[in-house]
């Protein structure tokens, strides 16, 4: 049985179970008929459940252990991936992967957070929480893209930059700040895809680009709902309320003009069908890449500046 994102997925899981049992039976006419009926019902229930997700439930989907991660997308979208390692300063951070790849015959550079699927992998990947060397590695790889005039594609999926003693010693704040500044003037097109969890500065540190795409059930936030609840409500249990207040869904961000496009997910979320999720993303990615390639680099940099320059809302006081 598939792992549940949360209790809200129970009605879906029940039907999926029945389907599984039925499909093990010999395919008599009666069984096939029942199967068809169940499949219809499954679609309906999926639709129903996933169109009414609460903000906190979106977090659970975005953090689903079977959600496609950066390496899954790389495998499904690109060919000839050559992974690069290390920041040339301190070490190799396994929570960020990156390197050279071929996208529909065209060389590109790809960088993204990697969370790791099982316990061993998760520890190896530090749960996708990068340290300064991770961000420095990311920038080093992106600089290579600039040097050889190749576009950059980044995948964001992290709960945040790692809060640890070593990370602070080696300048977590400086590493993030430096990436923000340098990505804003990197002389090559950058497409950012928020695939899962967009956790604060640790996400933004590879998130400055010309186009920002976001998967339908991904989230992007200034702080995790748990962290926000602990600070403002002084109670971590208020995370659901915090998630509601923070407005983290792709639809919210699109409404606020903070992202460019929402990438739809297969029915019932990307964790149900990696291939289909990658296929839909492919369409969006390819179109955006072709558009960006047409723009002269100076215009591109100006547009990138203006894009972030516009972000923010305030009132002008009339005196």
């Amino acid at each position: 049985m598939r792992k549940l994102a949360g209790d809200f997925e129970k009605p879906i899981a029940e039907i999926e179970d029945q389907l599984e049992q039925l499909s093990a039976l010999p395919p008599t006419e009666e069984v096939t008929e029942k199967l068809e009926g169940l499949k219809k019902k499954l679609r309906k229930v999926c639709q129903e459940v996933y169109s009414h997700l609460k903000p906190w439930e979106r977090y659970l989907v975005a953090r689903h252990p079977e959600r496609p991660y950066t390496l899954d997308f790389i495998l499904l979208l690109f060919e000839d991936f050559v992974e690069m390692h290390g920041d040339r300063k301190f070490s190799d951070d396994h929570s960020i992967v990156g390197g050279l790849a071929c996208y529909k015959g065209e060389p590109i550079v790809v960088v993204g957070h990697e969370k790791g699927r099982n316990t061993r992998e998760k520890i190896y990947r530090n749960f996708g929480m990068a340290q300064p060397e991770g961000y420095r590695k990311a920038l080093r790889i992106m600089r290579l893209a600039e040097k050889f005039h190749r576009p950059v594609i980044t995948f964001i999926d992290t709960s945040g930059a790692y809060p640890g003693i070593g990370a602070e010693e080696r300048g977590q704040a400086e590493a993030i700040a430096f990436n923000l500044r340098e990505m804003s003037r990197l002389q090559t097109p950058i497409i950012v895809v928020v695939t899962g969890e967009g956790g604060s500065g640790g996400a933004l540190a590879i998130g400055v680009g010309d186009r920002i795409l976001m998967l339908e059930f991904a989230v992007y936030s200034v702080i995790s709902p748990e962290g926000c609840a602990a600070i403002l409500w002084k109670n971590q249990e208020k995370k659901e309320e915090a998630a509601e207040n923070l407005k983290v869904s792709a639809h919210d961000l699109k409404r606020f003009n903070l992202i460019d496009e929402i990438v739809p997910e297969p029915l019932g979320g990307a964790h149900r069908d990696h291939t289909e999720a990658a296929r839909i993303l492919d369409e969006h990615l390819y179109r955006n890449l072709q558009e960006l390639k047409e723009v002269p680099i100076n215009d591109l940099l100006k547009q990138r500046y203006d894009k972030f320059r516009r972000m923010g809302v305030f009132e002008k006081e009339i005196r």
Binding site: I176, A177, L180, R181, S184, R185, S200, G201, L204, G207, V208, Y220, S221, V222, I223, C228, I231, L232, N245, L246, K247, V248, L253, F256, L258, R304, Y305, F308, R309, M311, G312, V313
Partner: peptide, 17 residues
């Protein structure tokens, strides 16, 4: 926190400038 992702994006805005 009260301005959510708007606040986060100020980091990118200022750093670009």
């Amino acid at each position: 926190m009260q301005e959510g992702v708007f606040s986060l994006m100020q980091m990118a805005k200022i750093s670009s400038a």
